[in-house]
Design a protein around this nucleic acid. Structure first.
Lengths: 142, 142
DNA sequence: ACAAAAAAGCAACACGGTTGCAAAACAACT
DNA sequence: AGTTGTTTTGCAACCGTGTTGCTTTTTTGT
């Protein structure tokens, strides 16, 4: 890992008031290197057994709490995470973008350019949050 | 259960080419009585221990396969199911409606009246399916 | 360099869901 | 109705995902 990269990771952690540990650096680095979303299992696989399962879970939880990554709902039941854009404050996520799941490569991408369309509900419903997941075939798999 | 209801349940099963058993009748009845979606756990709770866990899983799977119910993605990871409208053919679901999760009562509803808005993706993406889950406060919880 | 605070590792557990197999129930046909 | 072949059930065991409690190790901040 280049020294610049190293610095980037460390400062990202500090900005989000997370203490800097080896595990957190490695995991954050994975997210920076990867365009798509990552599930716990992906991380465990990529890191080998450098870290305990539980450490990875807790790291992901900490990242979510501090607004560094956000979770993405999936059909299969495992939680996937992706990096937040800068606007996500600590404990206050607002990802108004669409998530795209490729049926071929099974990767999940955040389509930051595409805003979730507004939706009109019948009278009496209060909208709090809208999640939109589109599945199909991604750019690289066409 | 009224005789009419009984007949309705049996014919629904037969129409979807499912053999008629006590478990299937009871579980289907739950869906007919309930407006919201049901998770495996809900069904297990409502039926007591009349049926084995596995039977319930397999029944739900059979219902999904035959186009009687559809699954709904949730944030917490457990799968919820709701009755399909008539248009759902066997093994060929097309639920173009929005799902609404109430933060207060934690129920999930299919808003059949509300179509999922169309979404425009960047060039190169093929859209296959769109899932939209809105969370907030429902009619009865206002 | 040190004390206080936070994170890592470990073991054990909870939950949701699946699989293989034998026993029971169902469907269909005479 | 009785018989037979097929489907479903129940049971036990298993797997994957995620959590909790506790002790040891690492970070942090002075």
């Amino acid at each position: 890992m280049s020294a610049a990269r190293q610095q980037e990771v460390i400062s990202l952690l500090k900005v989000h008031s997370l203490s800097v540990t080896d595990g957190r650096k490695d995991i954050l680095l994975l997210f920076l290197k990867q365009k798509g979303a990552l599930a716990h299992a992906d991380i465990e696989k990529k890191l080998g057994d450098s870290y305990d399962r539980v450490t990875i879970y807790r790291t992901l939880q900490a990242f979510v709490d501090k607004g560094l990554i956000h979770s993405i709902p999936t059909k299969d039941n495992s939680i996937r995470y992706a990096l937040c854009k800068d606007e996500c404050a600590s404990g206050h996520h607002h990802d108004h973008h669409i998530h795209f799941v490729c049926k071929t490569c099974d990767n999940t991408y955040c389509l930051d350019e595409v805003a979730t369309p507004s939706v009109k509900l019948p009278k009496g419903y209060t909208i709090n949050q809208v999640e939109m997941v589109v599945s199909g075939v991604c750019l690289s798999c066409q």
